[in-house]
């Protein structure tokens, strides 16, 4: 944990970072995640770049119906404990149980913001509060969100929630408040400090290890490698949104 506060003193140039990321990616395959963090550590004063595109791969074969580890972790991380009102309480990540109508085949998967390359929520937002960061993370800038909920109407994944009541005891790293729309941030506060999102961490430790987090652009990284080597799919592929969250064995 304390290593997260460490800074590399020189801003690495992108090429060097890429190189290091590649090397670290190979090391990570062997199980050591600390090297990847050290190599990719982004300086606090460095802006995110489109050289990176963060994403997730979720293997539904490893995701079991009863397991809720990712959901609990998200709720704890962002203090999404709700008011006991299921219709209005927010959910940034939820478990879907699917049954094929024709074959009866059952599967289970977490559904969350898919961090699209072409997000409909960003297209429709009148103020530009709904936006896509250069590194692919789709966020709501709550400073300019007026609470019109057009993005909630536009999202094909039902990934967004509207905050229906005044909140208190927010986490310092996860501001959220009444009258604005919110959704999965891919734990941007963690990602900016080279940590993995809370759901992925929980899935590794308490769940089925079904989620992989990484850089879609990093060809030698774990995520891009897994996507290249195995078939995967996007939910509502027909919309051609190029989602950052991909599924296996769907």
């Amino acid at each position: 944990m304390p290593t997260d506060r460490k800074r590399t003193d020189d801003a690495l140039n992108p090429d060097r970072r890429r190189l290091l990321a590649g090397a670290a990616g190979m090391a990570a395959m062997g199980g050591g995640f600390s090297i990847i963090r050290l190599a990719l550590a982004k300086n606090d004063d460095e802006a995110v770049s489109s050289l990176t595109r963060w994403g997730l791969l979720i293997d539904t074969a490893k995701c079991s119906s009863g397991c809720n580890a990712c959901v609990s972790a998200c709720n704890d991380e962002h203090n999404l404990h709700g008011f006991g009102r299921p219709l209005t309480d927010p959910q940034w990540i939820r478990k879907l149980d699917l049954v094929d109508e024709h074959t009866g085949h059952e599967s289970s998967l977490p559904m969350l913001c898919q961090h699209c390359e072409h997000p409909p929520c960003v297209d429709v937002c009148p103020t530009g509060a709904s936006f896509r960061r250069d590194d692919g993370i789709v966020l709501v800038d709550k400073h300019t969100c007026i609470g019109c909920r057009y993005c909630v109407m536009a999202c094909p994944y039902k990934a967004r929630s509207f905050v229906h009541e005044a909140l208190s005891n927010q986490k310092s790293y996860s501001p959220r408040g009444k009258g604005t729309v919110e959704s999965c941030t891919l734990c941007v506060h963690r990602v900016d400090r080279d940590r993995t999102p809370a759901c992925v961490e929980a899935c590794q430790s308490d769940g089925g290890g079904a989620m992989v987090f990484g850089d879609l652009n990093d060809e030698s990284g774990v995520l891009a490698g897994a996507l290249r080597d195995h078939p995967s799919s996007q939910v509502r592929r027909d919309l051609d949104l190029n989602t950052g969250v991909r599924y296996r064995n769907l």
Partner: peptide
């Protein structure tokens, strides 16, 4: 009905012209 009706000024000063809503303003 907006979640933040107090931010009408934001709606008038920040625009995303890909949004029909922004055009409608």
């Amino acid at each position: 009905d907006l979640g933040r009706p107090d931010r009408l000024i934001v709606a008038m000063t920040y625009y995303n012209f890909k949004s029909i809503f922004a055009w409608n303003i």
